[in-house]
Design a protein around this nucleic acid. Sequence first.
DNA 1: CGTTATAATTATGTATTCCTGATACTGGAT
DNA 2: ATCCAGTATCAGGAATACATAATTATAACG
Lengths: 229, 229
Amino acid sequence: MTTSNLPRKKTSMKRRSLHEEISDHLRSMIIEGELPEGERIDESALCEQLEISRTPLREALKVLHSEGLVSIEPNRGARVAVLTPEEFAELFELIGGLERMAAELAASRATDSELKKLAQMQTRLESLYSAGDRHNYFELNQDIHRMIIAMSRNSTLTSLHEQLLMRASRGRYMAIGTEDRWEESVQEHQALLEALQAKDSVKAGEIMLEHVRHTGDCAVNALKLRKAV
Amino acid sequence: MTTSNLPRKKTSMKRRSLHEEISDHLRSMIIEGELPEGERIDESALCEQLEISRTPLREALKVLHSEGLVSIEPNRGARVAVLTPEEFAELFELIGGLERMAAELAASRATDSELKKLAQMQTRLESLYSAGDRHNYFELNQDIHRMIIAMSRNSTLTSLHEQLLMRASRGRYMAIGTEDRWEESVQEHQALLEALQAKDSVKAGEIMLEHVRHTGDCAVNALKLRKAV
DNA sequence: CGTTATAATTATGTATTCCTGATACTGGAT
DNA sequence: ATCCAGTATCAGGAATACATAATTATAACG
């Protein structure tokens, strides 16, 4: 008996509803900037573009709305949510608080292997900095933050953080924020790592809060400048 | 031209979509415990009960899902999300962090009139405590927390907090948490008020964090006991 | 020529229908 | 008696159809 009879395509057993896939698709379209801020979302047009019907699309829009990525005016349709500098600043304030919390928890809950992994990431971060590779630097930078969030061992916090990060990282304003103060950022990450290794919750939290606050301030300024155009 | 032509019935100009009203309705049904944890949500049944069609109901379910109040299994329908003690503990950890953040911000941003109002609420809280009025005590207690959140002047934080509170306050576990340690709670609130009046951000934050942590621990224990039955 | 009112069109909101996957039941074989 | 296969039934997922509000265009009036 051969195994060839078994359907090989069942590698991903996960049944995903259409509206879920559409949510993901639209979400990345918004985050990648393919759908720009304030853009009206024409249901019919999107439907034939994605080759789906309106029902699951509308369900997806509801989901993205409650995630804060889409705004809906009754009887007037949906559009990509516009991020005002004020909202952006609020978001960063929030993210800062969450990341401080995560850093504090991570300091007391992190395993040795996690700390080791984090140290490796930090080393790589520094080499990317030396190499002047801004793009990969930013990616790794976000990964490090995500790693620390995960180390908090609070999945509710983790998913919430991820959601807020999506709202904030639209248009790569955050990237600008970190790139604007490259050297400081590397140093702050180093200090944070040391605090985590020392299991100093308070210090780790403080460093993280200041770090995010600085990044946020730069990003907010970048956003304000762009809006002023 | 007279003004009599203008339709008078437009007192409430807000056009609310059906799915929005249904979301609100279901949300309160879940929070009030009318729909118990784990209960299957039969779409057809609910539709004829609420006298609506399935489309807006399903949209509402998607919204409640992304709020964490409803769980959806593809092709197997929706049910009221069950709150495990672990998730509940995580939620409280999160809420604690958010409320600390809010308290810190409130200490530096609160207006005099807000502080005055808060002091009045505290006075009333103490009288409710003396009178042994547990029900109204709990209500006012929540109002005070909401008030402090609002004083943070961060609307994103405020709405997020409200959402998490809904997830956590199902079944009134939180009420049990505060009632279990009534006297301490009153004192902590008093100390918090004083820190806010002194505009001592750090202290206000610390008190708040400890306060929520204690409340949460009691609530988690209450939940675990109930689950154990 | 501009303004306003009304009609036509378009897009959103809701209902209904169709289809597909899941669960329960029946019957047969071991 | 139990376990498996096959079928029937049912509920959820998606598409289509219908209703209604909003927008635009057009025409009439000042």
